[in-house]
Design a protein around this nucleic acid. Structure first.
Lengths: 214, 214
DNA sequence: CGACTATTTGAGGCGTATCAAGAAGTGTGG
DNA sequence: CCACACTTCTTGATACGCCTCAAATAGTCG
């Protein structure tokens, strides 16, 4: 049984028993796979959240994607992972051995087609992110981030962000301080509220105005 | 017969007669397909060069890719093109109707697999570009651009760039002036030369030093 | 409680954008 | 072929958005 998601960057396929999936759990901060390692598995998030990123030799980091519940990550065309993937909170994933998936894909055109859809959806997200990174200012970036997370986490306007400000900054091509300042400014101008005792819990008060900013 | 390219962002499949490809020519500046239009064809560059870009309502533009000889573009998962594609010089393309390609793909797992490889290669390029746009400074961006174009155009260190400085700027998330200044500085410091009577003809003198900059 | 990390906020600096002007290159009509 | 208009490219002066550095506050975990 293959399930399709309406979330443009959510998985197109659900990893099924026929792929011989196993389960694995990672604590917050643990690495799931490393940049350059042999890519011999793909993953689906069951619970938790994951960041996929590249780093330059001097430590600059670009997070290319956050993987949330039901998202699939780790698909590679080449031999090695081009990213490091780390759990950003305690996370459980399904693991499918790549060899098995590829074997099934040679037999089943539908599986290959679903992989294609998944890759294309990831590509669409990357292309939108290129516009964001190359041409948007810091306010537009942070507003777009909040709306993306709202859409992907719940759609209710109440966000429990799993990632730090640093993660957000490295996703948006900004510094921590700039992210913090933009959030503060959105709060001051009445577009959102922080939870009393948790800075990562954010309530979007005026999503329409945030949307106009992007 | 399917051909594979060693160029990571070159096409994996060659559009073949079995897809009922036809040929079309576009003059410099002409639109091949528009953002939002119904995506009913995919293209392979035979001669010339193409830019694919998105624009914001206020005119800011992000070029997501340059398509050179043998590159395939215009593949979409959804109904509509997410880009505008324009010829940046006089260009001839092969055109395959999407319906036909998709029909063949349902029958031939190899075709679907090749589309997957193509999408994955495009994705890899987009992910590298995210690092460039989000975390590199203007010198690193321009150096990376020159090396990419050298690799894709010839590999000889002698570049006949088809695109304007503005196109380069919109590809790198910079302004025309900054691109021009970086190129001038590379020239002053002996890393490259401009042709006598054509500013788009560039000879890379010290590619090793350019590589160290990226 | 104490050590540590995450976040916010302020002051000041830097890198790239903006604005402006001139030079170089291109295309068109005479 | 030149004259002219137009676009592209370069270069300089200045502005400003975001980064850097610093320090205080808030939150987390032993």
């Amino acid at each position: 049984m293959l399930s399709r998601s309406t979330n443009p960057i959510a998985p197109v396929i659900t990893i099924h028993a026929k792929f011989g999936a196993s389960e694995a759990t990672f604590l917050s901060g643990q690495e799931i796979h490393g940049q350059g390692e042999r890519a011999d598995a793909i993953y689906e998030v069951q619970r938790g959240a994951v960041r996929s990123y590249k780093t330059l030799s001097d430590g600059r980091r670009q997070i290319c994607a956050f993987h949330l519940q039901d998202d699939i990550f780790g698909w590679e065309n080449g031999l090695n992972y081009r990213f490091t993937a780390e759990a950003i909170v305690d996370t459980t994933v399904l693991v499918v051995r790549r060899q098995i998936l590829e074997y099934v894909a040679t037999k089943d055109v539908q599986v290959t087609h679903d992989l294609l859809s998944m890759a294309t959806n990831t590509l669409e997200h990357a292309e939108d992110q290129m516009m964001l990174l190359g041409r948007k200012n810091s306010g537009e970036k942070v507003a777009a981030f909040l709306l993306e997370m709202d859409r992907r986490l719940s759609g209710t306007g109440v966000l429990a962000l799993p990632m730090t400000r640093r993660d957000i900054a490295d996703y948006l091509g900004l510094t921590v301080e700039t992210v913090s300042r933009e959030l503060s400014q959105f709060r001051t101008s009445g577009m959102l509220m922080f939870s009393e005792n948790n800075q990562r819990r954010i309530v979007l008060i005026d999503r329409q105005r945030l949307r106009r900013l992007t």
